[in-house]
């Protein structure tokens, strides 16, 4: 499998009143064609900024740098605004967290779906409409033709997120970046949407970068996992490696927080990681996690060593078990 997306040394800096906030620090990963990479971490760990940086959608006060940022053979770091704009919605598309507000209330579903298609593929209004109806069917919306004429406020949150997924698929992208796509939905709907994303991936073969804070989601869909903490990736590997043998204490802590039916007894306290995420303004020296880590030692004051073992990588003084 060749890589559809290669990220090396991605940095995102935000200028804030307190100074420069290093939201993403030297992040590197690869996504193969058709693969699902889950980026996991707490709120404010830089995972959404990573997603926006990939899409070139960072806020105005943000600056992106990368040693290498290559998508489908195209150097995104060197691409012009127009080139990036041509890729967005076409070869790479994005699904957002808030389905309730992510669709424009003033236009019908059909108008918004067809707008994306006609922007990138041109063609007749009828062809765009046909594609839109086809995809609404694919994302499990009944009476697709009728739905095309409806406005977002006439649809439930789950339906709207299905519409967003259909919109992301309009131009048959090679990569979908999904930023917490199920967080705002009911638990039952969450499961349906995740299954839908997996099914669509099997059918259309696109790669998926899924940003989430929910390890339960990761366990269900991920091929590989990157765990982010304080703007940096602290552990990376296949889903099997990371879940079976988490090497970084932070990853281990996150996994302890998931209740497991059968193993977690009723009334038993779930794991919790004490403390809070460090402030990201200014430089972090040493391991960013050490103030919350049970295994912290004096050596953690220095930059943590990088370990690699069969594609499983982590940054911690603790080596392989």
């Amino acid at each position: 499998m060749s890589a559809i997306l290669t990220v090396e040394g991605l940095e995102v800096d935000l200028s804030v009143p307190a100074g420069t906030l290093h939201a993403v620090r030297d992040v590197s990963f690869e996504v193969a064609r058709g693969e699902t990479l889950c980026i996991v971490g707490e709120s404010g760990c830089g995972k959404s900024m990573t997603a926006l940086a990939l899409m070139g959608l960072l806020p105005r006060n943000a600056r992106r740098r990368a040693r290498r940022l290559v998508f489908d053979g195209i150097d995104l770091a060197a691409a012009s605004r127009t080139q990036t704009n041509d890729l967005r919605g076409s070869r790479m598309s994005m699904i957002f967290q808030e389905p309730m507000t992510a669709l424009n209330p003033a236009y019908t579903i059909g108008n918004q779906l067809c707008g994306v298609y006609r922007r990138h593929k041109g063609g007749s209004a009828a062809a765009a409409r046909e594609r839109a109806a086809f995809l609404l069917g694919k994302v499990g919306i009944a009476a697709a033709g009728e739905r095309l004429g409806q406005y977002p406020h006439q649809l439930s949150g789950g339906l709207r997120q299905r519409v967003m997924i259909a919109m992301a698929l309009m131009c048959d992208p090679a990569l979908i970046v999904a930023d917490e796509p199920t967080t705002a939905l009911d638990v039952t709907i969450q499961a349906q949407i995740l299954k839908l994303l997996k099914d669509l991936q099997d059918e259309f073969g696109m790669a998926l970068v899924l940003i989430t804070h929910d390890l339960g989601v990761v366990a269900r869909v991920a091929d590989s996992v990157a765990v982010m903490y304080a703007g940096a990736i602290v552990e990376r590997g296949t889903a099997a490696q990371v879940f079976a043998a988490p090497r970084h204490p932070y990853t281990a802590g996150l996994i302890d927080c998931i209740p497991v039916p059968g193993r977690t007894k009723p009334g038993e306290r779930l794991g919790a990681i004490p403390g809070t995420v460090p402030a990201l303004v200014g430089n972090i020296t040493g391991c960013a996690f050490r103030s919350r880590c049970a295994h912290a030692q004096a050596r953690c004051e220095d930059a943590p060593p990088q370990h690699a073992e069969g594609g499983h990588e982590w940054a911690c003084i603790r080596g392989a078990a």
Partner: peptide, 22 residues
């Protein structure tokens, strides 16, 4: 700053379409 304008940008729509249509 609305989410749907971000969606429009993420869909690669032209700046004119983002500003005037959406």
């Amino acid at each position: 700053a609305a989410d749907y304008v971000r969606t429009a940008r993420a869909s690669g729509l032209s700046p004119a379409s983002v500003v005037f249509k959406h």
